[in-house]
């Protein structure tokens, strides 16, 4: 685990200074607490086949959570506890065996915001799943919720998306999209029409789907790109 500006009380990580972090999550459950008025960007990787992360966001804290994984079962709980807290959650996964993500987002204060972008490319024959729940209880006003869930199937694998928004206030702004499909036939045709072989087209489109939303440094970008290339072979 690489941390700067940290106060680490395992399994709880308390972040109180603005910075970028890299976190390798193993089998132990990890709890991340963001101090009030703190913003931070975290890149979460995995060292085991499953991960369990809980995130608590205090007043006016802003959390950018990004993750690029391969064949991992993840459970992420996000508690927007303080007024004005916000999370931008980008989760990308390459799947070749059964795996999935379960995200639960709890808006517990007013003016909180969650933007969830999940993308899986399933190269395998088994099930890849996304389960995304977000809730806004009575009394939490002016919340903003966005969910975008995508699974692309390359072979005979399956995909399942279970998106749920439970909103008990009238003035929330919510957006939702979910789709399971193969790569667009038109895009495949367009790329191949320029001489690019099918395998290389899959690589380009997978990369765009999984890395297009991510904001990471060149070193990680190269690392993730290599993972995609390896999977394609």
């Amino acid at each position: 685990m690489m941390f700067m500006n940290k106060l680490l009380l395992k399994p709880q990580i308390y972040i109180e200074k603005e910075d970028s972090y890299e976190l390798v999550v193993g089998e132990d459950a990890v709890e991340i607490v963001l101090a009030p008025y703190t913003s931070c960007k975290l890149l979460a990787l995995a060292s085991s086949k499953s991960q369990n992360v809980t995130i608590h966001l205090s007043k006016e804290s802003r959390f950018e959570y990004q993750s690029f994984l391969q064949n991992i079962n993840s459970k992420i709980q996000i508690f927007l506890e303080g007024e004005g807290a916000s999370v931008d959650f980008v989760y990308s996964m390459l799947a070749s065996s059964k795996c999935g993500l379960k995200v639960e987002v709890y808006h517990q204060s007013s003016h909180t915001s969650s933007r969830i972008h999940n993308a899986i490319v399933n190269y395998g024959e088994e099930l890849a799943s996304l389960s995304v729940d977000a809730s806004v209880p009575k009394g939490c006003v002016s919340c903003h919720l966005t969910q975008d869930n995508r699974i692309t199937l390359l072979k005979n694998g399956k995909g399942k998306i279970l998106p749920n928004l439970w909103i008990d206030e009238f003035d929330c702004f919510a957006e939702h999209s979910a789709y399971i499909s193969k790569f667009s036939k038109e895009k495949m045709f367009y790329c191949r029409m320029r001489g690019i072989q099918e395998q290389d087209v899959y690589f380009l489109l997978t990369k765009s789907m999984l890395l297009g939303n991510m904001n990471v440094d060149d070193e990680h970008l190269t690392q993730f790109t290599e993972m995609i290339q390896k999977m394609g072979r």
């Binding site: 667009s184 895009k187 790329c191 029409m193 320029r194 690019i196 072989q197 380009l204 489109l205 765009s208």
Partner: peptide, 24 residues
């Protein structure tokens, strides 16, 4: 040359064209 060329989000022109040129 397509009548309505498609757009592909996340794949840059330069990456696409370099891959295509290498293939050709």
């Amino acid at each position: 040359v397509n009548q309505n060329p498609v757009s592909i989000e996340g794949v840059t022109n330069s990456e696409f064209l370099k891959t295509a040129l290498s293939s050709v």
